[in-house]
């Protein structure tokens, strides 16, 4: 880390290797698009490299990097709101043989959990993408990225209580979406 701060590019390359999956996953989950996430992740590392001499170490490097990525992801989401074209995880891709679905590997769960239908996964993903930015950010960082409350408070520069209340609201919203899916008969939930 210190060598990277001194301008050692090889040392910075090692940092990129170490954090690329974490940041890429975070951005992809925030944006809902792995391809756009690739560009944003690269840009986050470029900005980190340029700003590294000004990094004072008041927070950990990974918190600082998350903050850069978070700001960039929010910029992209705001551009989307202004109507600029973007991609989505659920949109089919154009190939030589016509359209095809994006394949997202599920490496987390066994067959019983993975048996949720594609439609259900898409519905849940849409529900996550429909969450307000602030709720989604906390949800992704805590539930999916495994960050602590304290780190999230540092990344987003908000009090700890705000992190907890946003997480509570995000969980509630997702639960409501699932409830609607159950009521519509799209999924079954056993007792």
């Amino acid at each position: 880390m210190e060598r990277a701060r001194q301008g050692d590019k090889r040392a910075f390359g090692q940092l990129v290797d170490e954090y690329k999956d974490k940041i890429y996953n975070y951005v992809a989950r925030m944006l809902g698009d792995p391809y756009e996430a690739e560009d944003v992740t690269q840009e986050a590392f470029l900005r980190a490299y340029r700003s590294l001499p000004r990094f004072r170490g008041a927070s950990s490097f990974h918190t600082w990097l998350y903050r850069i990525a978070s700001n960039l992801a929010i910029d992209v989401m705001r551009r989307r709101k202004r109507g600029e074209p973007t991609f989505s995880l659920d949109e089919p891709l154009e190939g030589e043989d016509g359209e095809f679905e994006r394949e997202i590997p599920d490496e987390t769960f066994g067959p019983e959990e993975a048996s949720t239908t594609r439609e259900t996964r898409i519905a849940v993903r849409r529900a996550i993408m429909d969450l307000p930015e602030k709720l989604r950010d906390v949800m992704v960082l805590y539930e999916l990225q495994g960050e602590t409350y304290e780190d999230i408070a540092n990344i987003l520069d908000v009090p700890l209580g705000t992190v907890k209340s946003r997480l509570f609201n995000a969980r509630n919203r997702l639960k409501e979406v699932l409830e609607e899916l159950v009521e519509a008969g799209e999924i079954e939930v056993g007792q």
Binding site: T108, I128, L178
Partner: peptide, 19 residues
């Protein structure tokens, strides 16, 4: 029960990706 399922759905809908 609904909440437990929501958590499972959340993780299965947003699986980890490799950069």
């Amino acid at each position: 029960v609904l909440l437990r399922h929501t958590r499972v759905m959340l993780h299965s809908s947003m699986p980890p990706l490799s950069a």
